[in-house]
Structure formats: structure tokens, C-alpha cells
Design a protein around this nucleic acid. Structure first.
Lengths: 326, 326
DNA sequence: ATGAAAGCGCTAACAT
DNA sequence: ATGTTAGCGCTTTCAT
């Protein structure tokens, strides 16, 4: 690989001049510019980004900490963040934690300024006691129990859950269960609150099924448990789409028809939800806006805007009404 | 951030000694080792990976070139590759091409030794004429029309497609369509060949529906077109799971029951296929093995093993038989 | 076993 | 407008 120096020698100028041309700095005598450009293409020069960043004291990377990319929601999220970061010449380093508390803690603790310029973290299991303030600017995604003065991007989970539950009430459902209750998971706590509020307003009973993880399997299990009881629900609001798909699966296995016997609402609007059978009614956050807001915030912090108080950006959502509640 | 030099000063030794301790090199006098270790933890030293790699002439990164992470198959793949790479202290840089020919070409052309030590590429649309040999060790994933002397990891697509089709024949289906035919996409060409071979052996007619892209939408469209014809198929083999989900959707919309009226087989065994309604019969490649093989190959090449002839690693697969064909 | 010093490729003061 | 040079943090000869 040709270096800046090689190009300089070939062009018969100093490295500074080459650097100036490469970076578009200042003025370069047309004659020299031409010679440099010739040398540049003759050598096929590509700047060594690592060396540049070492010198500049930045890394050009941001970390994205998520449970796993194989979960469609996080795949979609990561895709959006990579695209948004690329617009600012940033690369994204993805760290998978499996939603495991220890791995989340270690991963966040390992985030350092010589590895990344900032981080976007989607915490699942860590609690405040676990983590110190990361040593790089960080923005937190979704609700979480971390009492850390960090920027945050998310949707209004209480309202979203209220909207979903209200939708089921308006559809005439009276025994509305929820799947996904979890003691510490921030989104779960908020969504449960929204659900409760809507039921209270309507004077309907709460039916709460917990889930430790949010995979298909957990949804199916929770639904099976609900149906095994004496007085089964006629609707269920699941805290993510995978729980919902699992719940639908279990309902069907139980001989029920969705939505006739039991209506189902999900959360996330993953791509699949529009094509499942039945198509899934779900809360649809504006994921592109979320990715953009998160990247913009780290950019701002990494740019040195450090005494701005912690920001809380709320991303809009809509309820996508589909077959599973019609 | 503390540097090696800071630690050296604090410990009262030279940077060399600290470096030796940090990297576990050679012998260090116990007394010195203790002092260095104390200084290390007192300063909370973390090596600057960028500087290390600059010096070592490596980057510590491999690129993963995929269409988009929001496609579940690629999300799962990326997750596996990141995990496999992490075992060797490698970070993965993900480049999304949207399966676009120009972007694939540019991305591959931009792959340079100062950015990444190697690359894993899942080509969708590029053709041989488009791309020169990447300047870093690269392994290609899946079938592709690139006549480049590069390592390759994939499954036996012809046999897999034959297996899928044969399964439908054995189930008594007689009008078996295929969705996903594409003139240049390597996997499509091979899967079509396997399908044709199986039909030929059974003396059954070919019903071939093309698809430009492989999303739900394309599967639904293709299925709708097949059903609009006079003599609809009683089974369809789709070249990936998303096409299959789209096809099922369209069949249901058309008032058909899967598998009673029409059986459906997919390809990839994405996580969702086990929970869809009906659960999808699909070709299940061993994705973990695929990720591991790909990472091992780049590692070997990046390690300097350059005169080994291009390797072709075949990953095992099985047919997961589920409700959509029962 | 450890220290001194060069240099990876680049940028940015500083000088001219 | 362009050249010279120090130095980002690290590893690695070369000495000792």
C-alpha cells in the first residue's frame, strides 16, 4: 500500500501538500495539485484510517450494544444505525450481550475512548448498581432502570401500551391479558403501567403473565399457561412481536382461532408482522427516526457538547391495526 | 486515558517492561512484574488497540458485506460471524449493500488492507466483470457467479433443492412450482437446477416463477400470479423463507389452506419458521458451522497462508419438516 | 531481563 | 503555498 510519503516522493512535493490535497485543505498551487493528483491515482493511494484516527485522537467508531442480531428487532435497529452512522463516516462496532446481565455489565465497562468515540446501548438486564458511567458518550435506547445521567431515546411506552390495550377494549374484548411482565426490565414496567391504566379506566380485570425472555418460545409458554386456566382471556397484549407470534402459535395449537376466539397485539412492528397469518396488530415505533436520533446524539456528545444536560428524545409511534385484532 | 508510558513512569520501569507484562512476553523479574501490575490497575490502563494495530500492521477488523441486517437470515448470519470473530479478538465491520449491484461493487473495491484484515462477502448481484480480486483475503458466502479464485463457504444448493422438491413429490404433490428463479443470482441458479432434476426424475411438469428480490412481498406477488393461472400448483418450493411466508400469505388471501390445498417449503430455517402458522418446512443449513468456517478461512489467509489453492467448504444442511407440508 | 530509540502512517504546529 | 518535524500509543529491534 502506498503511503502519503510515497505519493509525495512521486509527485516531488512534501507530505504536507499531499495531505492538503487529500483532505481538501487550504490552497495548493494548480501545478502541484495536478502532480499530486496524478501521483495519487498512479499509486492508488488510500489513506490509512487507523493512523489518521490515532493522530486525530478519535477512533471513527461507535459501539452498538444489543442482545443479539438474530432477534429481528435488533437486526432492523442495527441496520438503521449502521446506515445513519455511515452518513457521518462512522463505523459501527456491534457487541452482543445475549441480554445477559454480566455480559452487559462487562461490555459497558469495557467501552473506552481508544476503542470507540461513543456508544449506543440497548440495556436489557443491567441495573444501576451494576454499571458506572461509561467513559465515552453514550445514549441509551428504550426504557431502562439505569439512574445514569445519560442521553436517552425511546418511545412513550406507557402511552403506547395504553393505546394497544384501549384498542382491544374498543374491539369489545373484556378479558385482556398481558404477556411479558418482568420485574426490572424498564420497557416491561412501563408497558405494564399503560396496560393497567387502560384496564382500570374500563373497569376490567388484569391478567398478567410474566416472561423472562422475549422469544417466540416464551410467548408460546405464557399463552399455554393462560389457556390452561379456568377462564381464558379473549385478548392478549404482548410486549414484543416475538412473544405475540409465540402466543398465536400456542393459541392455534390449543384449537383457538385468532382473532375470533382471542385477539393478539404485539409491539415493535418487525417486518414479519405484516405477513404473518394472521397479520399482527402491533405498536410501530418510527425505527428510522430512532436510529437517526441516537446517532445524532452521540455525534453531538462526541463533538464535545458535554455540558448539555441529559437529553430525552421521544420517538413517535402508531398502532398498526391488522388481522389479529379484527 | 493512561498510556503505556504513564504506567512505566508510575512503576519506575521502561515501557518495554510494561509492554512485556501486558502482552505476556518473556520473563519479567517478579519484583518488576508486581510493580507493573500495581501500576496497571492503579491507572486502569487499557491498551490502545488502534495504535497497537498500526504498529503491528494489522487492523483487527474483518468486513462483513451483506445486503441488509434487517433481513432475518443476514441478522442471524451476522450475529454468528461476530461471535465467531470475537473468539479470535477480531471485530466485524458490517457493510450493507441493499443487494444493489453498484453498491456491492463499490464496497468490495473499497476493501483495503488498512481498513480490514479480511472480508466475508455475501454477494447478491455483482457479476465477475464487476469486481477485481479484493486487496484483502476474502471468503465468499453462498453460490455466486464470480469466477474469482477465492475461498468459498456454502451448502450444496443443488442437493438441497432436490431434497426439498423430492419431499414434496413424496408427499404426493404433482404440480410443484418454484418461486425465486433469477437469471444471475448464484443460489437461484443452483436451486433451480436441483428442483428441475427432481421433477425430471419424477416426470412432473416444471412451474417456474421468478423473483427479483427475496422479500415477503415478492413471494406474495409470485404466488398471486401462480394462482391467477388456470391450473394452480398444489405445492411450491420457495428459494428463501421470506418468499415462503409471502407465498403462504397470498395463498391464504386467495382462500386456500396450507398445506391442504397447497404445500410450501422454504429455505434458510430462519428462527421464525418454527413458529409461523403453519410452521414452515424449510431447508436448514448449519449456520453456526457456516459462520465458523468463514471466520476460520479468513483467519488462515490473513495469517499469511496465501498459496493454498482456493478452498470450498461445504456446510451440512437438513430438511426441517413442519406443518406447511404435512 | 530491561532500557533506549526507531518507526507504523498520519496530521498539525511551526517555519519559511 | 509548501516544507519540516514532532508525536498520537504502541511494538520491536538493538543494546546492555
Amino acid at each position: 500500500m502506498a503511503t502519503l510519503k510515497d505519493v509525495a516522493v512521486l509527485a516531488g512535493v512534501s507530505v504536507k501538500t499531499v495531505s492538503n490535497v487529500v483532505n481538501g485543505y487550504g490552497f495548493v498551487k494548480p501545478e502541484n495539485r495536478r502532480r499530486v493528483e496524478d501521483a495519487l491515482s498512479a499509486t492508488g493511494y488510500r489513506p490509512n484510517i487507523g493512523a489518521r484516527n490515532l493522530r486525530r485522537g478519535r477512533t471513527g467508531f461507535i459501539a452498538l450494544v444489543v442482545p443479539e442480531l438474530s432477534i429481528p428487532y435488533f437486526g432492523e435497529l442495527a441496520g438503521g444505525i449502521i446506515a445513519a452512522a455511515a452518513e457521518h463516516d462512522w463505523n459501527v462496532l456491534i457487541e452482543q450481550t445475549q441480554g445477559d446481565r454480566d455480559r452487559e455489565r462487562e461490555t459497558i465497562a469495557a467501552l473506552g475512548p481508544h476503542m470507540v468515540d461513543g456508544a449506543i446501548i440497548s440495556p436489557q438486564a443491567v441495573e444501576t448498581a451494576d454499571v458506572a458511567l461509561p467513559r465515552v458518550p453514550a445514549v441509551l435506547l428504550g426504557e431502562h432502570p439505569l439512574a445514569l445521567p445519560l442521553d436517552h431515546v425511546g418511545i412513550d411506552n406507557v402511552t403506547a401500551a395504553h393505546t394497544a390495550t384501549r384498542h382491544l377494549i374498543d374491539a369489545g374484548r373484556r378479558r385482556i391479558a398481558v404477556i411479558g411482565q418482568h420485574p426490572t426490565r424498564g420497557t416491561a414496567v412501563q408497558r405494564l403501567a399503560g396496560y393497567r391504566q387502560a384496564l382500570r379506566e374500563a373497569g376490567l380485570p388484569e391478567i398478567v403473565a410474566p416472561a423472562l425472555r422475549y422469544h417466540h418460545h416464551d410467548g408460546a409458554e405464557a399463552m399455554a399457561a393462560l389457556l390452561a386456566e379456568g377462564d381464558p382471556p379473549d385478548a392478549v397484549f404482548c410486549f414484543n412481536d416475538m412473544l405475540a407470534f409465540g402466543a398465536i402459535r400456542a393459541a392455534v395449537d390449543h384449537g383457538l382461532s385468532v382473532p375470533h376466539d382471542i385477539a393478539v397485539v404485539g409491539f415493535d412492528n418487525t417486518e414479519h408482522s405484516a405477513y404473518s397469518v394472521p397479520a399482527l396488530t402491533t405498536i410501530a415505533p418510527d425505527k428510522a427516526a430512532l436510529a437517526k436520533a441516537a446517532v445524532d446524539l452521540v455525534r453531538r456528545r462526541a463533538g464535545g457538547d458535554t455540558d448539555l444536560p441529559p437529553q430525552h428524545v421521544q420517538i413517535p409511534f402508531v398502532l398498526e391495526v391488522r388481522e389479529s385484532t379484527r
